[in-house]
Amino acid sequence: MADAEFVVVRDLRKVFNGHTAVDGVSFTIERGEIFGLLGPNGAGKTTTIRMMSTTLPISAGDVTVAGHSVRRKPAAVRRHIGVCPQELALYLELTALDNLVFFGRMRGLSRREAAAQAMENLELVGLTDRARQPVAKFSGGMKRRVNLAIALMNRPELLFLDEPTVGVDPQSRNHIFDTIEGLRDGGMTVLYTTHYMEEADRLCRRIAIMDGGRVIALDTPHNLKARYGDPERVTLEDVFLRLTGRRLRDAG
């Protein structure tokens, strides 16, 4: 498996009782890059991520991660990935530390390893001083950061981030960006979805724009902007609106 094909998505489809949510999506992710998956609400980003991360059965096509097929070897794929889902997936009654330690141990870490890594991850997301407080007392932005810190337990090679900055205050958002860039610099591969264009422009090396379950454009932010004029003047927002139209979306 070459690093250029660390993740291969091939003709991926998902049909929910007759409704096609993901309609033949293909792309590859290089090892060590931040790959952006953009699109309006209901475009199929979350559905794509859930199939790639083994939690939603695939209707057709396949995904390979580090050479392991999601369809045939989901357990092997799970050992390489960390998932930060779009919805908060936390135990509110437990402390931040306990949440991290629990999921770390579920992923095979010993109690000691899990505790040490949990503290590192909490430091990474700037929550060291709140480690022993119940997550229920946290602000929305802090919960988002815990959600991310859990995904980093057991140091995944491939990290799925599904809209990690939704409903987050500017401080938390910046902290999350810095964290993601730090992880990328440490060699982690990241699949990042968002509908904030300026985030994608700042973080992603390459971007796939999805609409109606299909990839309608895939390139570097610079090249995408260059399609519609001077890349220094055109924003990714302009590209996005040109590609997906100005129709209002509220699904998804």
Binding site: R50, T55, R78, R79, P85, E87, A89, Y91, M106, G108
Partner: peptide
């Protein structure tokens, strides 16, 4: 409901 089941599955449970 709190999506932790999906997280458990992704964590190899």
């Amino acid at each position: 409901e709190s999506h932790t089941l999906e997280r458990l599955v992704a964590s190899s449970a």
